[in-house]
Every structure is written in C-alpha cells, then in structure tokens.
Amino acid sequence: MPAIQSAPQILDQVFLDMRAKLLEVAASLDRLDRATSADTVAQDPRRQRIQKTLEILTTQQKNRAEQLQLLFSDTYDEKWARPGAR
C-alpha cells in the first residue's frame, strides 16, 4: 500500500517533529559527554549501539527503522531447544 502523499508534503508535515527528536538525541549525547566518567560510558555496549544507529540513519537504505530494531535485538539461534510433551 504505497503512501498517498508526495515527499514534499510529508516533509512539510514531519519536519518540525523530526527536528525536535534529533535535537533531543543531540542534547542527550552532549549531556553524556559533559557528565563525569564519560569515558566509561563510551565503552558501554548501549552507547556503542547508539553510535551505530547514527551511522544507519545516514545511509540511503529504505528500511532504517527495521535495521535499528534489529540492532537493538538479541540474537536468534534457529537451533534453539524446542519444548515438547511432558
């Protein structure tokens, strides 16, 4: 089901909201950097994942939201031990 609106129409609608959300992210990163023990946080896997999301956002791919979700997901092993009858 393709979008009905054109890209310029969508941009008009979402620009301020996107701007506000990006500013929140930027301010949160600044807050982390200003705080004590900022070096420790730099090694935190959560902080590293956030850095990776910023890289994903700058790509031209069309499934950025899905990629971010997968980045924040646990690994799935298809050979996991299935349950069964008692």
Partner: peptide
C-alpha cells in the same frame, strides 16, 4: 518487548510452524 522481541517472535513462529 524491546531486545527480546525479535528472538521471541522467531521462537514462537518456530513452535507454531513445527
């Protein structure tokens, strides 16, 4: 929810499809 969702959904679909 959250980090558990992808793995959990795949496990659920595995059990259903088995």
């Amino acid at each position: 929810h959250l980090a558990d969702k992808y793995k959990g959904t795949r496990m659920i679909v595995d059990m259903l499809r088995d």
